[in-house]
Amino acid sequence: MPSPTKGPRLGGSPSHQRLILANLATALFEHGRITTTEAKAKRVQPLAERLITKATKGDLHNRREVLKTIRDKDVVHKLFAEIGPFFSDRPGGYTRVTKTMPRKGDNAQMAVIELVNEKTATSEAEAARGTKFAKDQQATAGSSQQSSETAEAAAGSEEASAAESASETSEAESTSDEDTENKDQS
């Protein structure tokens, strides 16, 4: 069960805080980057990330759940059509809060909260190779080669020929491993 937020609400009452945070999240999804006080930025960050997680799932139920918070249908459409698919390969951490200089007038701590524009390094590498993680790929390839070896050994009548084929396959495996390692290094 989630524990309630400690300390006073933003704006004075729980309903006012909900409205403030919903409006801030709406503005964030509409513009991609907003400047607000540091306290509000830090409080709206978990709400915005939950909404983006719902947007990455993208079905009708999640869209209705998001509409409970964001009442602007244009912004919800943008969230599900653009922002959600862009973040589909990022496991959380969709927003970034950067502190800026205090505000003139009341010297309040200010911050910029923005949607992260960059792709993650692993997702970029996977897109460039057109494959998944090298570890997972090697594990699946090794298991398939082992199964083929056992099949050859069972089918082969002469032990010598089977041993030769096994040595050939092992050499092929070593070369393929070297290739993958070189790819990883590059």
Partner: peptide, 18 residues
């Protein structure tokens, strides 16, 4: 000030913030 986006160039950790 440390840990704050630069008020003159607007960058923080190599990113343009403002």
């Amino acid at each position: 000030p440390p840990h704050v986006a630069c008020p003159s160039c607007g960058q923080y950790k190599g990113r343009q913030v403002s």
